[in-house]
């Protein structure tokens, strides 16, 4: 026996999209249904480990995660070391990707720049998932007026033009790592809340949730112990997709000067700084841009693989 999502799916698929032809769920033997959960988990792992999409994405992401954590060990030069005498140097054996306008080593700055992205994007995503999932759970579980109130509030949040608010808020509160993280998280809460709300809405109509209500479980217990474990897959998938966007948003804010302030080697910031010198030293601009692109593509590939595996 190797891996299989469910026996039934494979044994009786619908020919040419026709109707289900078996009455009710199968009363299949216990041993056929046995190990279904475990098999399901193994199926996910197997699908992921044989998916080129997921593997390539994961490799790229893991590379940047490693760099972000251990950049101090791998950088050839101090990314902040200014050397006015060697500015705008093209790639050479000492400076593999050349130097920028202040003579700083481009490669070192790109590697070091991974750190801020890897801090901001996951932190913002985690925050957004926590609050988004909470709102989605509450709205979907209680329904009715609570649902309307929460989801309309979420809709309002979605209708706000992100960058304008970002400019305003960061302009007033000042830009800091924490502010950027919170701001991105707030922007991402609506999407996650909606996804979770949809999945929870399907679950709460099921017998097991109603049985929990009928034996007098509190709402919080029902949400966390009964419903939440059954909506983890969509939450995980949504989180990976949001992660890609978070990287992008963080870079955009930095590019606009709303993120981290100089001399941070942050990619968005660096792209913004170096674009003035594109004709003199394109490498100083291209290197962080390509780094950013690979990271976002990597996250999205991994997200795509996950989404397929959880289907």
């Amino acid at each position: 026996m190797t891996d299989q999502p469910t026996t039934r799916q494979t044994l009786a698929p619908e020919p040419n999209g026709k109707t289900p032809h078996d009455p009710g769920p199968p009363e299949s033997p216990a041993d056929a249904k046995a190990n279904r959960t475990r098999r399901n988990r193994r199926y996910i792992i197997k699908t992921l480990s044989t998916s080129p999409t997921f593997i390539s994405g994961a490799v790229i992401v893991l590379f940047w995660v490693f760099v972000g954590v251990a950049w101090q060990l791998v950088v050839p030069h101090d990314p902040q070391a200014v050397d006015p005498f060697h500015s705008f140097e093209p790639p050479s054996s000492t400076h593999l990707l050349g130097t920028d306008n202040l003579g700083r080593d481009v490669l070192s700055r790109v590697l070091a720049g991974a750190q801020t992205v890897l801090l901001i994007a996951p932190a913002a995503t985690v925050l957004a998932v926590i609050f988004g999932a909470l709102l989605g759970l509450v709205a979907g579980y209680y329904g009715g007026i609570v649902d309307i109130f929460v989801m309309r509030a979420v809709d309002v949040l979605m209708a706000i033009p992100t960058l304008i608010v970002a400019v305003l808020v960061l302009g007033i509160l000042g830009s800091s790592l924490l502010n950027v993280i919170i701001l991105i998280a707030v922007f991402f809460v609506p999407q996650i809340a909606r996804t979770v709300r949809g999945s929870v809405g399907d679950e709460v109509q099921k017998g097991y949730v109603e049985a929990a209500r009928m034996r007098g479980e509190r709402g919080f217990y029902s949400m966390v112990i009964e419903v939440l474990p059954n909506v983890t897959s969509p939450i995980l998938v949504e989180a990976t997709i949001r992660l890609g966007y978070a990287v992008f948003t963080a870079a955009t804010l930095s590019f606009l000067g709303l993120g981290l302030q100089p001399p941070s080697p942050d990619w968005g910031r660096t792209i913004s700084e170096q674009r003035a010198y594109i004709e003199i030293s394109p490498w100083a601009l291209l290197a962080p841009a390509i780094a950013l692109a690979t990271f976002i593509v990597g996250v999205n590939l991994a997200a795509d693989g996950l989404r397929k595996a959880f289907k």
């Binding site: 769920p25 099921k206 017998g207 097991y208 109603e210 049985a211 474990p229 059954n230």
Partner: peptide, 15 residues
């Protein structure tokens, strides 16, 4: 007052 639901596949929490 307790209830038994129709669908055996959703009446119990799969987790």
């Amino acid at each position: 007052i307790q209830m038994v639901f129709q669908s055996p596949d959703s009446t119990l929490n799969p987790r």
